[in-house]
Write a protein that binds this DNA or RNA. Structure first.
Lengths: 257, 257
DNA sequence: GGCTCCAATCTTGTATGCAAGCATTGAATG
DNA sequence: CATTCAATGCTTGCATACAAGATTGGAGCC
């Protein structure tokens, strides 16, 4: 049976795996056919995602994945920094320690990230690198903030997909390891500093795209082949075309869970 | 015209004004009749509130306002502390200053709080004291976190209503003023410390009810009159009865906006 | 050729009908 | 008298039908 929760979950996974670009259209009828249910169920999923800021409805036109403006992105990264470093700080202040099972879980997650680095599967790599932050928040013992953080991570992904700032996966992985090692060594304060630096490197990049943002999406849509110099934006768009699927198509294989 | 957003907004205002107790039943048909629309619209509002953690659905039984457990409350207060102090810290670090218009807005909000202190209108007082935190977050320039904080404030209210820890309104007001004065004086670091203390006084109370929590709701439901000693829980319940309204009734006057 | 207007089509918005599950109440039985 | 079970009413879950707005394409006109 197809529930609204399963639909929204699939969509979120697809975004985290960079398989659904921002502004992708999510037609009710289309999704209903795809999932084999009625529009009612799809609509429930859309409303839920809308409450979480992930999709936006344009009246009687359709549902679209939210397009994150540069201003929103700034608030977004600030929010992530506040939450992620704040959780570590709170953890440090209460003098808690991660137990063996939790350390094991985090170590396992890092192993998966490492494995995905060499892998050709770009989607899974993106998914895991983003999911680590949520996983860490859960491990720090606050499910409420972890849930909020998951949504923020999704929105972050929507922004980086558009602006191609994701870049250095290997570096991200190494910084994750560094955070983990500080926690493992019982030094959450150091973990907080490292996390702060880790998030800071992304935040810098946001400020760099601040000015050009207004034209960015148009430019990307209009000039895919004419200028060979800007090819960083090219492969993604052409990848989507050559497998013959529309942008709103749901991938057949689930990201990872 | 009645939209789903207006319904959920009304419900949230009612909670913040302590006019809807936790575990209150929100029947689809009932609300549809009350708002003069179909179940569909009500249902959309419920799904939205459900995504925000404010209502919970029990399959084929009904929608209920979420009952916050002591464990959830702990995470909730930690989340609020992380976000609210984190925003002030981030504000301080970037060396920003509040402009005149923003200071004016905050000062106006504090005036309203002060006026509501002497007022007999308990609902408005609760609403304003809670709303100040959200207002402050908005003033610090992060609408995303402000929205998340609003939901957390609603959940906090649901917890304090059950456990009657709200108590000292005047003290809360004074602490709000203290935070504001630090900001006005251009010392956000001091504002952060004061906010941390302010939230800390509540958090203490949560830990006090930690142990009895499992029986709390039962006790409250079973022994309303037999023991005169536990009357702290009495007046609220009887207040609701004497005006002849069911617990899920929506108040005629909107809280404040 | 270019502009305007209208109609066809596609989309969401809303209401309603029916199905199915849960709780309660009552009777029947040990 | 206690216990079990069946029937009934009430609630949400889901699908569908219809309404109404938005877009787009083309025909007609200047």
């Amino acid at each position: 049976m197809v529930t609204a929760a399963s639909i929204s979950s699939r969509i979120i996974d697809a975004i985290l795996a960079e398989q659904l670009p921002p502004n992708a259209r999510l037609g009710e009828q289309e999704l209903a056919k795809l999932f084999g249910c009625s529009r009612t169920v799809v609509r429930e999923a859309m409303i839920e995602l809308s409450a979480r800021g992930i999709v936006t409805v344009s009246s009687r036109r359709g549902w679209y994945l939210t397009e994150i403006s540069a201003a929103d992105a700034r608030a977004l990264y600030e929010a992530r920094e506040v939450i992620e470093t704040g959780l570590l700080r709170s953890f440090a202040r209460r003098g808690a320690q991660l137990d063996m099972a939790t350390l094991y879980r985090l170590r396992g997650h890092l192993e998966q990230q490492k494995a995905a680095l060499g892998d050709a599967n770009v989607g899974r790599r993106s998914y895991l690198l983003g999911d680590f932050h949520v996983c860490l928040a859960e491990c720090l013992g606050n499910r409420i903030l972890a849930a909020k953080l998951r949504d923020l991570t999704v929105l972050t992904t929507l922004f980086t997909m558009r602006h191609q700032t994701s870049g250095d996966a290997e570096r991200s992985y190494k910084e994750h390891v560094a955070v983990f090692q500080a926690l493992e060594a019982g030094d959450p304060a150091a973990a907080e500093r490292r996390m702060c630096n880790h998030l800071g490197t992304w935040e810098e990049k946001v400020h760099m795209v601040r000015e050009v943002d207004a034209l960015e999406s148009l430019r990307q849509a209009l000039a895919p082949v004419t200028e060979p110099g800007v090819e960083v934006a090219g492969p993604k768009a052409s990848d989507e075309r050559k497998d013959g699927r529309g942008p709103a198509e749901i991938p057949a294989t689930k990201g990872a869970k």
